[in-house]
Design a protein around this nucleic acid. Structure first.
Length: 573
RNA sequence: GCGCCCGUAGCUCAGCAGGAUAGAGCAACGGUUUCCUAAACCGUAGGUCGCGUGUUCGAAUCACGCCGGGCGCGCCA
């Protein structure tokens, strides 16, 4: 099956070719869902611009298109309105057919790509020296959604968790652990706690700071004792990270970790190559790439001969192209790194490393508190991710207990987890990622508006219907003929049919919030259907069977959509 | 100083590969439950789309210039 927008675009291409010549087959027919039902279901805006280009009256151009357009069996003959809008109304028969077709389609109309790519998605990437905090949720949740969408479309997705496990602060930590005699993973304990203590000592005690710097050298030159301490530290940090990924249902695994230290051995050759090709030049003793528009260069090698993360990122991009065979690389990172990655991308292009490789930078904004300042605890500390998830589950639990006292304690706990974690993730995904967003418990856990609980509730209501169907005996299980008649049925089916174009848009623009908006609109369309169209108590058995199909495709669309966002559904809540 | 991002209803946000009367949710006011989960639904009210100029048949959307806010700017990551 094929989604209406694509189908109409194909028919319009034929009409444009027939009316204006083959050259116009490739003209974008500008088919968009209509913003207002009174203008039909879809509209084409091509006649205005085309009329202009051809020096013809736009309404005449519109008429010429209509004269050559064959939408038999799909839509009514388009109406020409205003300056030359073509308003298209799909027939109820067509919508009914499409709905029935979706009932038998596991993929709900979303086709696998015919051009599968190897796509590297770089996300999460925490600093192994510290505990994960709220800041990490964005890259994690957004990146994982993009991974799920690309994977669902049939691409070969290679996840890369580029954790920070190298550099001066690890020298400091190793030195501190050795000194206090806690250099094995059983006794390391709270990561943030000893990071804070080590930092204090580093700042206050010049002797210690000196030994810490020596530790960096020892670490990077492979000193066994130091490496042992370092490995223990990293293991603790990884365990901490894995536990949080589990709670968040992130698809990253330990195998996806490719830490900064992994690139250590490649840094010198990376730098040499950039120097020999003339892309990088010496400046004040440091090896730099100067990128137009930016004053500060990308620093490939420091004047003391050491390497920083600029070099690591260049080594990583080379590795991803040459070894991982990526043809698209997606970086999901804080917007503050925009300039840095522009420089990295520019340098990769200049060096010829990324020919035919699409480099996507996916920036995201900050999380703000309700005071419009960076989100902190009451005492002003950064919020630990683990604490945040605890609180989400607690708050969700309290709401569940209040709203649905009939649930058993066990069931309530499950609902609390799914709703709480879902709400947090959805809040992070539902806005335009590049903007800062305001964190608000009450808004994200609300049952009204564009929230995870609202979507999960719509799904749970449908499941409730199906539980009752089973109780009523066989033969009514949501497959078979569909007859779309009621306005609410029309609106619901139209929405369901838009899934394909939305998923495609997300994979192209890498903006998960379009999927959220879509699922919210789908849910409101369902709520309206639910109010207006009795399912189990429909007037006739045929109508009942038809509406059960609509429930089925709606529920599966919601489930799939939420799954692509990384959010679970519930059978009851 | 240079650069990047943001500015839409009282609040939180969609819409911005130009398209018809700018949409939601909250808050305010009013209505809906012998009926599949009311954690819902329906309605009323609320907007010089920061300001200005330009391009266009048409601008919240594109360009330029202001104003306001955030962030980043050589050897930290």
């Amino acid at each position: 099956m094929i989604d209406p927008q694509t189908l109409l675009a194909n028919r319009f291409a034929d009409a444009l070719a027939a009316a204006f010549g083959e050259d116009h087959r490739a003209t974008d027919p500008l088919i968009r869902p209509a913003q207002n039902p009174k203008f039909g279901d879809y509209q084409s805006n091509v006649a205005m611009s085309l009329g202009k280009r051809l020096g013809r009256n736009p309404r005449e151009a519109a008429q010429a298109i209509v004269d050559h357009l064959d939408v038999q069996g799909i839509a009514e003959v388009p109406e020409i309105a205003g300056p030359g809008f073509l308003n298209i109304k799909l027939t109820n028969a067509f919508l009914s057919e499409q709905a029935a077709a979706l009932a038998g389609d596991e993929r709900l109309g979303v086709k696998r790509t015919d051009q599968p790519h190897s796509v590297v998605v770089d996300y999460l990437g925490p600093n192994a020296a510290k505990e994960m905090h709220v800041g990490h949720i964005r890259s994690t949740v957004i990146g994982d959604c993009l991974v799920r969408v690309l994977d669902w479309l049939g691409h070969h997705v290679i996840r890369q968790n580029h954790i920070g496990d190298w550099g001066t602060q690890f020298g400091m930590l190793c030195e501190y652990l050795v000194q206090v005699g806690k250099a094995d993973e059983q006794t390391i304990g709270d990561l943030d706690d000893f990071y804070r203590k080590a930092k204090q000592k580093f700042d206050a005690d010049p002797d210690f700071a000196g030994r810490a710097r020596k530790r960096v050298v020892a670490l990077q030159s492979g000193d066994e004792q130091t490496l042992g301490v370092w490995r223990a530290l990293i293991r603790v940090s990884m365990q901490h990270m894995d536990a949080l990924c589990d709670r968040l249902h992130i698809t990253l695994t330990p195998e996806d970790v490719r830490a900064e230290s992994f690139y250590n051995e490649m840094l010198a050759t990376t730098a040499d190559e950039l120097e020999q090709s003339g892309v990088a030049k010496l400046s004040d003793g440091a090896l730099c790439v100067f990128v137009p528009k930016y004053e500060a260069p990308l620093m490939i090698r420091k004047s003391d001969g050491g390497f920083g993360y600029d070099a690591t990122d260049m080594a990583a991009i080379r590795f991803r192209v040459n070894e991982l065979k990526a043809v698209r690389i997606v970086y999901v990172t804080d917007a503050r790194q925009t300039e840095h990655f522009h420089k990295v991308f520019h340098t990769a292009q200049a060096a010829g490393w990324s020919k035919n490789v699409r480099l996507d930078f996916v920036p995201f904004g900050a999380i703000l508190g309700e005071d419009n300042k960076p989100f902190k605890t009451r005492s002003g500390d950064t919020v630990k991710l683990a604490d945040l998830l605890d609180e989400a589950e607690e708050r969700a639990g309290a709401i569940v207990a209040e709203k649905n006292p009939d649930l058993s304690a066990d069931e309530r706990d499950v609902v609390a987890k799914v709703v709480g974690i879902g709400a947090i993730k959805y809040a992070d995904l539902s806005g335009d990622r590049v903007k800062d967003y305001m964190f608000s418990w009450s808004r994200m856990l609300a049952m009204e508006g564009n929230t995870a609980p609202y979507l999960q509730y719509a799904y749970a209501r449908i499941q409730s219907i199906f539980r009752k169907v089973e109780g009523l005996g066989p033969g009514a299980e949501g497959k078979g003929d569909v007859t779309v008649a009621h306005d609410a049925e029309r609106a619901l089916v139209l929405k369901v049919l838009q899934l394909t174009s939305v998923v495609d848009a997300v994979s192209e623009k890498l903006q998960p919030h379009h999927l959220c908006t879509y699922l919210y609109e789908l849910s409101t369309a369902f709520s309206s259907f639910y109010e207006n169209c009795p399912v189990l108590k429909a007037d006739t058995p045929e109508e009942r069977a038809s509406r059960l199909v609509l429930c089925d495709i709606t529920a599966r669309t919601l489930k799939l959509g939420l799954e692509l966002l990384g959010i679970d559904v519930l059978e009851r809540m």
